[in-house]
Simulated scan of single mutants.
Amino acid sequence: MPGSAKIRKVFEGVATRQQMFRMFDRHAQRPSRWDDDAAALYAGEWFQISETDHDYMFEILPPLWIRGAMFAMREYLTGSVTSVFFALRIDGRIRYFHGYCDLSDRASTEEMRRAIMEREAGPARAMTREERLDHIWSSTADAYRGYAGKDWPDSCCGRRVVVLYSGAGEAFWKRLDKLSDHEIAAELPVHLRHLPSTIAA
């Protein structure tokens, strides 16, 4: 899989410690959790964390390695994918990030660092449709998100699904990637609903 991971932001804003730990395993509910190599699901995901949580993760275990302003966790999540933490100077201030990198690809950490800096540089805030969907997935409690199973059409099996509510207050499941713009806006926090769209890299 070297060179194949799509680098993507999966949460808007600075994650709290609770959110950080939940996002470490965003795909825990996948039906094939114990049967497949999940490297492709995780590799390339990143989000911002606080300085306190960056330092906390540094102190949990001796890092696998330290290279300048980044370090890798000694324990691998799956295959050759592990957590890499970054302290990056962006627009004159240090910000902190977590990303999943596939260390079988020697360039993955530098590609992640460069992608984060490019995405976060500049004063304008914006979100792609995919970033909005990933934020909703990252923010939704496990009881209200999951994966389509045998009760869904074959074309939907294994796709991410979330609970929505009708105008009458009735709950129903819908594929995450099929949410309308109106449904996406309703699921996002108020402060993110009106951010402009941006073209995915």
Rank of each mutant, 00 (worst) to 15 (best):
G92Y: 10
M57K: 05
Y56H: 12
R175D: 11
L61T: 15
R129T: 07
A69S: 08
S108Q: 06
D154C: 06
I66V: 15
S138P: 02
C156P: 03
M117D: 05
L133I: 02
W65T: 10
R95H: 06
A121E: 04
L164W: 01
D91G: 03
R113L: 10
R119K: 14
R125H: 11
W173A: 06
A69I: 00
A72N: 09
S108Y: 08
A69L: 01
I66G: 00
T140N: 08
S155R: 13
A148L: 08
G146L: 01
I60G: 05
I116N: 06
R125A: 14
A115F: 13
M73H: 13
A171C: 03
A121G: 02
W173M: 05
G99K: 03
R89K: 14
Y96V: 06
R114V: 13
E118P: 02
P63F: 13
A171Y: 01
R67H: 09
K150Q: 11
L176E: 09
P62H: 14
V161M: 02
W137L: 01
M70W: 14
S155W: 14
Y100E: 12
R160M: 03
W65Y: 12
V162P: 00
T82F: 10
P62D: 14
R106H: 09
G122Q: 06
W65A: 13
M117R: 14
V161F: 00
I116R: 08
A171P: 13
W173I: 03
E131Q: 11
E170F: 04
G122H: 08
S166K: 02
K174N: 12
A168W: 06
S80R: 08
A168N: 02
T78L: 03
